[in-house]
Design a protein around this nucleic acid. Structure first.
Length: 765
DNA sequence: TGGCTGTAAATTTTT
DNA sequence: TTTACAGCCA
């Protein structure tokens, strides 16, 4: 079961994004609405107040989990404006996510009791894009550059490698791309790469491909995400007058999540903050070294550790009073994180008077299915005690852990939402849709055009495409223009000739419409006439087709929120985040620990605390001690999400893909202070999860697996009799026609024939 | 060209 | 287990 059911909700989110209407509120910390001006400092504790009022000079605010970081940052922002220290356009405020930016904008407006205009507030990338739209010509780049997504990047790189006759197996393109990205994250241009940087991959040839890749990007007048930062830093370095212009503009700089900055973001900030004069910059960075969990994305925890050296005279303020969690949870989290060495040092203290709270429950289960079952049972029992589903979350280390939980939650009839995973703009239909738009708006955008030339099928295969590509390359023309020419000259034969002529005619007509009737009508017409919408309408086979059409319809509506196609495309490339969390929905949240940063729940379940999974063996193999510390920070992040209760689980045997693996409890469990832990005996309530249903368990011995070492658990198989009537959450009721183990073929009254896993249905009769 | 079949591989993913 | 992709044949 994927999120496909929820996709219209996701799509609704796009529209909201344009208006900045939503945000997460942590009630205790939110400023009370309708406070009169200058009351904005009321309710801040001493350190928070100091952090707000220390406006001049470099400042590092070390804000532990739940210490009111966001409140301090937004109040500080408002304070600067209210005190008349600067105009909104003189403040640069940088965040990592669009969600954080949106939230900050909303909260500042709330304090000021009016919308603030003219802010330079956004993510590193959106701010850089904004700057680069102005200065791109300095680097010989078109101001109208397109921003490529990850998929485009990979396709482009693959093409280059194929053209250079590289064996894609021995040198996987994703790995090469990763190397290039890491170089960009470190502000290294192709010419900066020396043999010393480039020894571990492709025999030192990687930099050659980096150079080719950059050249090709320029030819396409395109930027990838890394380029947005890289180009701006290059411009700042080469053209000091551009930098000076920004120095004059920005009087205050605010940076959120400083512990997650990578080298190039750090350089960008430093360039903007350091002036020629002796006067220190007014740069305030907020962060928590204990919550740095993105080193694998190039984040340099060193940036925060050496802040005082980078900005001499910097003040450091620690926010340690936690208003979120019970004292026990804080002590447990502190006990774990204390095992790390490279820390700034900081101890969370309870900010509110209150009970000590419950101990952390550590629960061992025989296997991963039992683990999921125990979690579902506990959720049900807590819900019976008046705890709302929305107050609970299951935080996992890796994506593959989701499945058993989805199954157990569904079986228990617990409403849940999966946060993260496939993001909105990653959906095939949305990417196709935007590719159509890009090809419409930018006839030279070859990557977009390639994506859609044969979607729906127009008889263009690999061979035809590579011929076209070759031809375009020879003539130095974009694909669209080349194709037009070839069609005009009758160089394309057979079925493809007619379909492609019609395809190109669609674009011509849509461009006319674009000029006359605006972009919404034009895009709709293009998707209609090109047969793209029809393709999904006629797709009877896939269950998702209807959802995809819904998504596309929502996308069309979303385009209307923007004045031009260009604006929409910029938005979808930069601002489209997976902001799926809706606090008002009464569902259990299931997400990775990474996705949980910044959120909080009354009850948190932390499954899979086993050596190898958490800490992840793979991380440890790659990063050694430093990686172990990062895993430990992840544990800390997980624990500190909980307000009242935390359950840690570990299974003796875990199914990973096909086979069972035995595992021992995570070392992080040993690191929890005993006095705050309660170890539960393994519970085995065989039938509880299934109630009075018709499920039967077969005792089929696990002959196919090698698990001599799993004496406690027997492979469970759900058997549904042929002819039984079953009920599915989406498809309604239907009759089982065929059963192949757990794989059922069901004829649903409404939805027709579907093949479906037994655990997704409930037996009715 | 495109559909079928067998094989290898499988973290985390703010933009 | 699922998924992606290369290689094969109609």
């Amino acid at each position: 079961m994927t999120l496909a059911t929820n996709s219209p909700d996701l799509l609704l989110a796009i529209r909201n994004r344009a208006h900045y209407t939503r945000g997460v509120s942590d009630d205790l910390l939110s400023p009370r609405p309708s406070t009169p001006a200058h009351d904005h400092l009321a309710g801040l504790n001493e350190e928070q107040r100091l952090a707000v009022e220390t406006t001049e000079g470099p400042l590092l605010i070390l804000a532990g989990a739940g210490t009111g970081k966001t409140r301090v940052l937004t109040t500080r922002f408002a304070h600067i404006l209210l005190e008349g220290l600067a105009w909104p356009e003189q403040i640069l405020a940088v965040t990592f996510t669009n969600k954080a930016a949106r939230e900050m904008r909303e909260r500042v407006s709330a304090i000021l009791e009016k919308p603030v205009e003219g802010l330079w507030l956004g993510t590193f990338h959106s701010l850089c894009a904004r700057m680069l739209r102005q200065h791109a010509p300095r680097l010989g780049l078109d101001r109208q550059f397109t921003i490529l997504d990850a998929d485009d990047q990979l396709r482009l790189l693959k093409q280059i490698m194929v053209a250079e006759k590289i064996d894609l197996k021995s040198a996987p393109p994703p790995q090469l791309l990763h190397h290039i990205q890491l170089w960009k994250d470190r502000a290294l241009l192709p010419e900066d790469i020396t043999a010393a940087h480039d020894v571990d991959f492709m025999n030192g040839r990687a930099r050659h491909f980096y150079a080719l890749y950059q050249t090709r990007l320029k030819e396409l007048s395109a930027c990838d995400f890394g380029d947005l930062m890289l180009h701006m830093v290059t411009i700042f370095r080469r053209y000091p007058e551009v930098l000076t212009q920004y120095h004059r503009r920005f009087r205050y700089i605010l940076v959120d999540e400083y512990q997650d900055t990578n080298t190039i973001q750090y350089l960008w900030l430093r360039l903007l903050a350091k002036r020629d004069t002796q006067q220190p910059a007014n740069i305030a960075c907020v962060g928590d070294d204990d919550q740095s969990i993105y080193s694998w994305r190039g984040a340099e925890i060193a940036n925060i550790l050496r802040f005082e050296k980078d900005f001499p005279g910097a003040k450091v303020i620690r926010l340690e009073r936690n208003y979120r969690s019970t004292p026990r949870i804080l002590s447990a989290a502190s006990g774990v994180i204390a095992h790390n060495e490279g820390r700034m040092g900081k101890t969370l203290r309870p900010g509110l008077e209150g009970e000590e709270g419950e101990r952390i429950s550590v629960i061992n289960t025989p296997d991963s299915d039992d683990e999921a079952r125990v979690v579902a049972e506990t959720i049900r029992s807590l819900h019976g005690k008046n705890q709302s589903y929305g107050d609970m979350a299951i935080l996992i280390r890796a994506g593959f852990q989701t499945r058993p939980f989805e199954e157990s939650l569904m079986r228990s009839g617990i409403p849940y939402q999966v946060i993260g995973g496939m993001r909105f703009y990653e959906r095939a239909e949305i990417r196709d849709g935007t590719a159509y738009m890009r090809a419409l708006a930018h006839p030279a955008d070859d990557l977009a055009f390639e994506r859609i030339i044969n979607v729906p099928k127009r008889g263009v295969g690999n061979i035809a495409l590579s011929k076209l590509r070759q031809n375009a390359r020879d003539r130095q023309l974009p694909l669209q223009a080349t194709l037009q020419e070839q069609l005009a000259q009758g160089m394309i034969k057979g079925k493809a000739a007619a379909t492609l002529s019609e395809f190109m005619a669609c674009f011509d007509r849509a461009r006319e419409t674009l000029a006359k009737q605006g972009h919404v009508v034009a895009v709709e017409q293009l998707l209609e006439e090109s047969g793209y919408l029809t393709m999904w309408r006629e797709d009877q086979r896939s269950v998702e087709a209807a959802g995809r059409l819904d998504n596309l319809r929502e996308m069309l509506r979303a385009i209307g929120e923007f004045a031009t196609l260009e604006e929409f495309l910029e938005h979808i490339a930069l601002v489209m985040d997976s902001d799926q969390l809706q606090n008002d929905t009464n569902r259990v949240s299931l997400m990775t620990l990474h996705a949980a940063k910044g959120l909080e729940f009354k009850t948190v379940f932390l499954p899979g605390w086993e050596e190898g999974l958490f800490p992840s063996q793979r991380s440890l193999d790659e990063g050694g001690q430093a990686a172990l510390e990062e895993e430990r920070r992840l544990a800390y992040v997980g624990l500190t999400r909980a307000r009242e209760r935390a359950f840690i689980l570990h299974a003796t045997s875990r199914r990973i893909y096909a086979n069972w693996q035995d595992s021992i409890p995570s070392r992080f469990i040993d690191e929890l202070p005993d006095e705050h832990v309660h170890v539960s005996e393994p519970t085995r309530k065989q039938n509880a999860a299934f109630g009075k249903s018709f499920w039967r368990r077969s005792q089929s011995s696990p002959a196919s697996t090698t698990s001599f070492s799993r004496p406690l658990s027997v492979k469970k198989q759900i058997i549904v009799p042929l002819g039984a009537t079953v009920k599915h959450s989406r498809f309604g009721e239907g009759v089982v026609l065929k059963a192949d183990g757990e794989r059922l073929t069901v004829n649903f009254e409404e939805a027709g024939m579907k093949t479906i896993m037994a655990n997704f249905v409930e037996v009715v009769s």
